[in-house]
Design a protein around this nucleic acid. Structure first.
Lengths: 153, 153
DNA sequence: TCAAATCTTGATGAACCAAGTCGGGAATCT
DNA sequence: AGATTCCCGACTTGGTTCATCAAGATTTGA
Protein backbone atom coordinates (compact mmCIF):
# COMPACT_ATOMS: atom_id res chain seq x y z
CA UNK A 1 0.00 0.00 0.00
CA UNK A 2 1.30 3.40 -0.99
CA UNK A 3 -0.78 6.47 -0.21
CA UNK A 4 -0.94 9.14 -2.90
CA UNK A 5 -1.30 12.78 -1.95
CA UNK A 6 -4.92 12.35 -2.89
CA UNK A 7 -5.33 9.51 -0.43
CA UNK A 8 -3.62 11.45 2.31
CA UNK A 9 -5.90 14.44 1.73
CA UNK A 10 -8.94 12.17 1.78
CA UNK A 11 -8.02 10.70 5.14
CA UNK A 12 -7.24 14.09 6.63
CA UNK A 13 -10.49 15.55 5.35
CA UNK A 14 -12.50 12.67 6.77
CA UNK A 15 -10.73 13.01 10.09
CA UNK A 16 -11.97 16.60 10.20
CA UNK A 17 -15.50 15.47 9.43
CA UNK A 18 -15.26 12.85 12.17
CA UNK A 19 -14.06 15.47 14.63
CA UNK A 20 -16.99 17.76 13.79
CA UNK A 21 -19.44 14.90 14.20
CA UNK A 22 -21.84 17.10 16.14
CA UNK A 23 -22.27 19.70 13.40
CA UNK A 24 -24.86 19.25 10.68
CA UNK A 25 -22.33 19.69 7.90
CA UNK A 26 -18.84 21.14 7.52
CA UNK A 27 -18.21 23.41 4.51
CA UNK A 28 -15.40 22.35 2.23
CA UNK A 29 -13.55 25.61 2.69
CA UNK A 30 -13.24 24.91 6.41
CA UNK A 31 -11.65 21.55 5.74
CA UNK A 32 -9.35 22.99 3.10
CA UNK A 33 -8.13 25.72 5.42
CA UNK A 34 -7.81 23.51 8.48
CA UNK A 35 -5.76 20.88 6.68
CA UNK A 36 -4.07 23.07 4.10
CA UNK A 37 -5.53 21.21 1.13
CA UNK A 38 -6.01 22.99 -2.26
CA UNK A 39 -9.72 23.73 -2.34
CA UNK A 40 -10.32 22.78 -5.98
CA UNK A 41 -8.56 19.50 -5.50
CA UNK A 42 -10.44 18.73 -2.31
CA UNK A 43 -13.64 19.35 -4.23
CA UNK A 44 -12.77 16.51 -6.55
CA UNK A 45 -11.80 14.18 -3.72
CA UNK A 46 -14.92 14.75 -1.64
CA UNK A 47 -17.05 14.29 -4.69
CA UNK A 48 -15.50 10.89 -5.19
CA UNK A 49 -16.11 9.98 -1.56
CA UNK A 50 -19.72 10.96 -1.98
CA UNK A 51 -20.09 8.72 -5.00
CA UNK A 52 -18.55 5.97 -2.88
CA UNK A 53 -21.18 6.52 -0.20
CA UNK A 54 -18.69 7.56 2.48
CA UNK A 55 -19.95 11.13 2.87
CA UNK A 56 -23.15 13.05 2.28
CA UNK A 57 -23.43 16.63 1.11
CA UNK A 58 -25.76 19.55 1.33
CA UNK A 59 -25.80 22.49 -1.06
CA UNK A 60 -26.43 26.15 -0.61
CA UNK A 61 -25.16 28.69 1.82
CA UNK A 62 -25.52 26.33 4.76
CA UNK A 63 -24.01 23.53 2.74
CA UNK A 64 -21.07 21.26 3.36
CA UNK A 65 -20.17 17.64 3.94
CA UNK A 66 -20.65 15.10 6.72
CA UNK A 67 -19.98 11.41 7.22
CA UNK A 68 -22.66 9.10 5.86
CA UNK A 69 -22.20 6.74 8.83
CA UNK A 70 -20.78 6.93 12.36
CA UNK A 71 -17.02 7.35 12.33
CA UNK A 72 -16.63 4.09 14.23
CA UNK A 73 -18.14 2.23 11.30
CA UNK A 74 -15.76 3.55 8.68
CA UNK A 75 -12.48 1.63 8.55
CA UNK A 76 -9.47 3.29 6.98
CA UNK A 77 -9.27 0.33 4.62
CA UNK A 78 -12.55 1.36 2.98
CA UNK A 79 -11.36 4.87 2.32
CA UNK A 80 -7.96 3.90 1.00
CA UNK A 81 -9.45 1.32 -1.31
CA UNK A 82 -11.83 3.88 -2.76
CA UNK A 83 -9.22 6.56 -3.28
CA UNK A 84 -5.97 4.73 -3.94
CA UNK A 85 -7.01 1.19 -4.74
CA UNK A 86 -5.43 -2.02 -3.50
CA UNK A 87 -3.82 -2.39 -0.10
CA UNK A 88 -1.70 -5.25 -1.42
CA UNK A 89 1.88 -4.68 -2.56
CA UNK A 90 1.21 -6.84 -5.62
CA UNK A 91 -2.11 -6.94 -7.41
CA UNK A 92 -1.99 -10.72 -7.69
CA UNK A 93 -2.48 -10.95 -3.91
CA UNK A 94 -5.22 -8.34 -3.70
CA UNK A 95 -8.71 -9.52 -2.81
CA UNK A 96 -10.66 -6.59 -4.22
CA UNK A 97 -8.34 -5.57 -7.03
CA UNK A 98 -6.99 -8.93 -8.10
CA UNK A 99 -5.08 -9.13 -11.36
CA UNK A 100 -3.18 -12.09 -12.69
CA UNK A 101 0.57 -11.58 -12.66
CA UNK A 102 3.24 -12.85 -14.97
CA UNK A 103 4.33 -15.93 -13.02
CA UNK A 104 3.24 -19.22 -14.58
CA UNK A 105 1.85 -20.86 -11.43
CA UNK A 106 0.47 -18.62 -8.73
CA UNK A 107 -0.02 -21.46 -6.26
CA UNK A 108 3.71 -22.19 -6.29
CA UNK A 109 5.01 -18.64 -6.54
CA UNK A 110 7.23 -17.93 -3.53
CA UNK A 111 7.17 -14.17 -4.00
CA UNK A 112 3.40 -14.19 -4.13
CA UNK A 113 3.26 -16.23 -0.95
CA UNK A 114 5.42 -13.70 0.87
CA UNK A 115 3.51 -10.71 -0.43
CA UNK A 116 0.25 -12.33 0.54
CA UNK A 117 1.37 -12.27 4.14
CA UNK A 118 2.22 -8.60 3.86
CA UNK A 119 -1.17 -7.88 2.37
CA UNK A 120 -3.01 -9.82 5.05
CA UNK A 121 -1.14 -8.03 7.82
CA UNK A 122 -1.66 -4.57 6.40
CA UNK A 123 -5.28 -5.23 5.49
CA UNK A 124 -6.02 -6.45 9.02
CA UNK A 125 -4.53 -3.29 10.49
CA UNK A 126 -6.42 -0.94 8.20
CA UNK A 127 -9.65 -2.89 8.50
CA UNK A 128 -9.57 -2.68 12.27
CA UNK A 129 -8.66 1.00 12.47
CA UNK A 130 -11.64 3.32 11.98
CA UNK A 131 -12.04 7.07 11.65
CA UNK A 132 -13.17 7.11 15.29
CA UNK A 133 -9.87 5.52 16.29
CA UNK A 134 -8.04 8.14 14.27
CA UNK A 135 -9.81 10.91 16.16
CA UNK A 136 -9.12 9.22 19.49
CA UNK A 137 -5.47 8.99 18.61
CA UNK A 138 -5.36 12.64 17.61
CA UNK A 139 -6.72 13.54 21.03
CA UNK A 140 -4.21 11.32 22.79
CA UNK A 141 -1.38 12.92 20.85
CA UNK A 142 -2.71 16.33 21.73
CA UNK A 143 -2.68 15.47 25.43
CA UNK A 144 0.81 14.00 25.64
CA UNK A 145 2.62 14.90 22.46
CA UNK A 146 6.10 13.96 23.66
CA UNK A 147 5.67 10.28 24.44
CA UNK A 148 5.03 7.78 21.71
CA UNK A 149 1.55 6.36 21.81
CA UNK A 150 1.37 2.71 22.71
CA UNK A 151 -2.03 1.63 21.61
CA UNK A 152 -2.48 -2.06 21.34
CA UNK A 153 -3.58 -2.65 17.82
CA UNK B 1 4.89 -0.34 -0.02
CA UNK B 2 3.71 -0.94 -3.55
CA UNK B 3 5.84 -3.06 -5.83
CA UNK B 4 6.22 -1.87 -9.40
CA UNK B 5 6.69 -4.36 -12.21
CA UNK B 6 10.33 -3.40 -12.08
CA UNK B 7 10.50 -4.37 -8.42
CA UNK B 8 8.74 -7.64 -9.03
CA UNK B 9 11.16 -8.50 -11.83
CA UNK B 10 14.11 -7.62 -9.62
CA UNK B 11 12.97 -9.97 -6.87
CA UNK B 12 12.24 -12.78 -9.30
CA UNK B 13 15.60 -12.36 -10.99
CA UNK B 14 17.45 -12.41 -7.68
CA UNK B 15 15.54 -15.48 -6.62
CA UNK B 16 16.89 -17.21 -9.71
CA UNK B 17 20.43 -16.11 -8.84
CA UNK B 18 19.94 -17.40 -5.31
CA UNK B 19 18.73 -20.74 -6.64
CA UNK B 20 21.77 -21.09 -8.90
CA UNK B 21 24.10 -20.26 -6.03
CA UNK B 22 26.50 -23.02 -7.01
CA UNK B 23 27.17 -21.73 -10.53
CA UNK B 24 29.85 -19.15 -11.15
CA UNK B 25 27.46 -16.79 -12.91
CA UNK B 26 24.06 -16.99 -14.57
CA UNK B 27 23.67 -15.27 -17.96
CA UNK B 28 20.94 -12.68 -18.18
CA UNK B 29 19.23 -14.49 -21.01
CA UNK B 30 18.67 -17.51 -18.78
CA UNK B 31 16.98 -15.39 -16.16
CA UNK B 32 14.89 -13.57 -18.74
CA UNK B 33 13.67 -16.81 -20.26
CA UNK B 34 13.11 -18.59 -16.96
CA UNK B 35 11.04 -15.76 -15.49
CA UNK B 36 9.57 -14.36 -18.68
CA UNK B 37 11.09 -10.91 -18.25
CA UNK B 38 11.81 -8.66 -21.29
CA UNK B 39 15.56 -8.96 -21.78
CA UNK B 40 16.29 -5.30 -22.42
CA UNK B 41 14.35 -4.30 -19.38
CA UNK B 42 16.04 -6.89 -17.21
CA UNK B 43 19.36 -5.51 -18.40
CA UNK B 44 18.45 -2.15 -16.95
CA UNK B 45 17.29 -3.65 -13.67
CA UNK B 46 20.35 -5.84 -13.11
CA UNK B 47 22.59 -2.94 -13.97
CA UNK B 48 20.94 -0.97 -11.19
CA UNK B 49 21.32 -3.83 -8.75
CA UNK B 50 25.00 -4.00 -9.60
CA UNK B 51 25.43 -0.31 -8.89
CA UNK B 52 23.69 -0.95 -5.58
CA UNK B 53 26.19 -3.67 -4.74
CA UNK B 54 23.64 -6.46 -4.64
CA UNK B 55 25.00 -8.42 -7.59
CA UNK B 56 28.31 -8.81 -9.37
CA UNK B 57 28.80 -9.38 -13.07
CA UNK B 58 31.21 -10.91 -15.46
CA UNK B 59 31.48 -10.03 -19.13
CA UNK B 60 32.25 -12.05 -22.22
CA UNK B 61 31.00 -15.31 -23.49
CA UNK B 62 31.11 -16.95 -20.08
CA UNK B 63 29.56 -13.87 -18.53
CA UNK B 64 26.52 -13.37 -16.38
CA UNK B 65 25.45 -12.28 -12.93
CA UNK B 66 25.71 -13.65 -9.43
CA UNK B 67 24.84 -12.44 -5.94
CA UNK B 68 27.50 -10.28 -4.32
CA UNK B 69 26.81 -11.88 -0.92
CA UNK B 70 25.22 -15.10 0.37
CA UNK B 71 21.48 -15.14 -0.21
CA UNK B 72 20.89 -15.39 3.51
CA UNK B 73 22.48 -11.98 3.96
CA UNK B 74 20.29 -10.15 1.48
CA UNK B 75 16.95 -9.09 2.97
CA UNK B 76 14.07 -8.33 0.62
CA UNK B 77 13.90 -4.89 2.22
CA UNK B 78 17.27 -3.98 0.75
CA UNK B 79 16.25 -4.94 -2.75
CA UNK B 80 12.88 -3.22 -2.64
CA UNK B 81 14.40 -0.03 -1.29
CA UNK B 82 16.93 0.05 -4.10
CA UNK B 83 14.46 -0.60 -6.86
CA UNK B 84 11.17 0.89 -5.70
CA UNK B 85 12.14 3.17 -2.84
CA UNK B 86 10.40 3.53 0.50
CA UNK B 87 8.61 0.68 2.26
CA UNK B 88 6.47 3.23 4.10
CA UNK B 89 2.97 4.11 2.87
CA UNK B 90 3.73 7.79 3.48
CA UNK B 91 7.14 9.33 2.93
CA UNK B 92 6.92 11.27 6.20
CA UNK B 93 7.20 7.98 8.12
CA UNK B 94 10.00 6.56 6.03
CA UNK B 95 13.40 6.17 7.64
CA UNK B 96 15.51 6.06 4.51
CA UNK B 97 13.37 8.19 2.22
CA UNK B 98 11.97 10.69 4.67
CA UNK B 99 10.22 13.77 3.29
CA UNK B 100 8.32 16.31 5.27
CA UNK B 101 4.60 16.18 4.64
CA UNK B 102 2.00 18.90 4.63
CA UNK B 103 0.73 18.54 8.19
CA UNK B 104 1.80 21.37 10.51
CA UNK B 105 2.97 19.24 13.44
CA UNK B 106 4.29 15.79 12.70
CA UNK B 107 4.57 14.83 16.34
CA UNK B 108 0.83 15.28 16.79
CA UNK B 109 -0.36 13.99 13.44
CA UNK B 110 -2.71 11.06 14.04
CA UNK B 111 -2.51 9.81 10.49
CA UNK B 112 1.25 9.82 10.62
CA UNK B 113 1.17 7.87 13.87
CA UNK B 114 -1.00 5.19 12.32
CA UNK B 115 1.05 4.96 9.17
CA UNK B 116 4.21 4.70 11.19
CA UNK B 117 2.90 1.49 12.70
CA UNK B 118 2.18 0.13 9.26
CA UNK B 119 5.66 1.04 8.13
CA UNK B 120 7.30 -0.57 11.15
CA UNK B 121 5.34 -3.77 10.68
CA UNK B 122 6.06 -4.06 6.98
CA UNK B 123 9.69 -3.07 7.38
CA UNK B 124 10.20 -5.71 10.06
CA UNK B 125 8.74 -8.39 7.81
CA UNK B 126 10.83 -7.45 4.81
CA UNK B 127 13.97 -6.96 6.84
CA UNK B 128 13.70 -10.43 8.31
CA UNK B 129 12.91 -12.21 5.06
CA UNK B 130 15.99 -12.89 2.93
CA UNK B 131 16.54 -14.28 -0.54
CA UNK B 132 17.48 -17.57 1.09
CA UNK B 133 14.08 -17.68 2.78
CA UNK B 134 12.45 -16.98 -0.56
CA UNK B 135 14.23 -19.96 -2.11
CA UNK B 136 13.30 -22.16 0.83
CA UNK B 137 9.70 -21.17 0.46
CA UNK B 138 9.77 -21.89 -3.26
CA UNK B 139 11.00 -25.39 -2.48
CA UNK B 140 8.33 -25.91 0.15
CA UNK B 141 5.65 -24.81 -2.30
CA UNK B 142 7.07 -27.13 -4.90
CA UNK B 143 6.85 -30.07 -2.52
CA UNK B 144 3.29 -29.55 -1.30
CA UNK B 145 1.66 -27.06 -3.61
CA UNK B 146 -1.89 -27.68 -2.49
CA UNK B 147 -1.70 -26.77 1.18
CA UNK B 148 -1.08 -23.22 2.29
CA UNK B 149 2.36 -22.76 3.81
CA UNK B 150 2.37 -22.02 7.49
CA UNK B 151 5.75 -20.56 8.11
CA UNK B 152 6.06 -18.68 11.32
CA UNK B 153 7.27 -15.26 10.37
C1' DT C 1 -36.70 38.66 -5.01
C1' DC C 2 -31.81 39.03 -4.85
C1' DA C 3 -27.22 38.24 -3.38
C1' DA C 4 -23.99 35.34 -1.42
C1' DA C 5 -22.23 31.14 -0.26
C1' DT C 6 -22.05 26.63 -1.15
C1' DC C 7 -21.84 22.09 -3.80
C1' DT C 8 -21.92 19.90 -8.99
C1' DT C 9 -20.05 18.66 -13.23
C1' DG C 10 -17.01 18.27 -16.82
C1' DA C 11 -12.98 19.94 -19.20
C1' DT C 12 -8.30 20.92 -19.40
C1' DG C 13 -3.27 20.97 -18.65
C1' DA C 14 1.41 20.52 -17.06
C1' DA C 15 4.59 17.53 -15.02
C1' DC C 16 6.04 13.36 -13.99
C1' DC C 17 6.87 8.40 -14.09
C1' DA C 18 6.67 3.52 -15.45
C1' DA C 19 7.58 0.14 -18.75
C1' DG C 20 9.93 -1.00 -22.40
C1' DT C 21 13.04 -0.27 -26.69
C1' DC C 22 17.25 0.84 -29.25
C1' DG C 23 22.04 1.41 -30.86
C1' DG C 24 26.51 1.05 -30.44
C1' DG C 25 30.41 -0.05 -27.40
C1' DA C 26 33.63 -3.01 -24.44
C1' DA C 27 35.11 -7.35 -22.43
C1' DT C 28 35.93 -12.33 -22.61
C1' DC C 29 36.42 -16.98 -24.22
C1' DT C 30 37.29 -20.39 -28.07
C1' DA D 1 38.72 -13.34 -35.55
C1' DG D 2 34.24 -14.10 -34.09
C1' DA D 3 30.66 -15.18 -31.08
C1' DT D 4 28.51 -14.09 -26.89
C1' DT D 5 28.00 -11.56 -23.19
C1' DC D 6 27.60 -7.33 -20.28
C1' DC D 7 27.81 -1.83 -20.38
C1' DC D 8 25.81 2.65 -21.04
C1' DG D 9 22.92 6.22 -22.28
C1' DA D 10 19.27 7.98 -24.89
C1' DC D 11 14.71 7.53 -26.36
C1' DT D 12 9.59 6.49 -26.79
C1' DT D 13 5.09 5.68 -25.48
C1' DG D 14 1.34 5.88 -22.67
C1' DG D 15 -0.69 6.61 -18.54
C1' DT D 16 -1.26 8.84 -13.94
C1' DT D 17 -1.08 12.49 -10.60
C1' DC D 18 -1.98 16.86 -9.00
C1' DA D 19 -4.12 20.04 -9.65
C1' DT D 20 -6.93 24.47 -11.97
C1' DC D 21 -10.91 26.51 -14.21
C1' DA D 22 -15.63 27.84 -15.77
C1' DA D 23 -20.33 27.61 -15.59
C1' DG D 24 -24.33 25.80 -13.46
C1' DA D 25 -27.60 24.29 -9.53
C1' DT D 26 -29.15 24.81 -4.74
C1' DT D 27 -30.05 26.94 -0.43
C1' DT D 28 -30.61 30.60 2.98
C1' DG D 29 -30.92 35.33 4.87
C1' DA D 30 -31.77 40.20 3.96
Amino acid sequence: MKLSVRGEYALRALQVLAQHAGDAVVPMQTIATEQNIPRRFLEQILHGLKAAGVVESRRGITGGYRLARPASEIPLATIIRHVDGALAPLSCVSHQFYEKCSCPDEARCALRSVMKEVRDTVAAMMERMTLADLVARAEALQARPMEPVDFVI
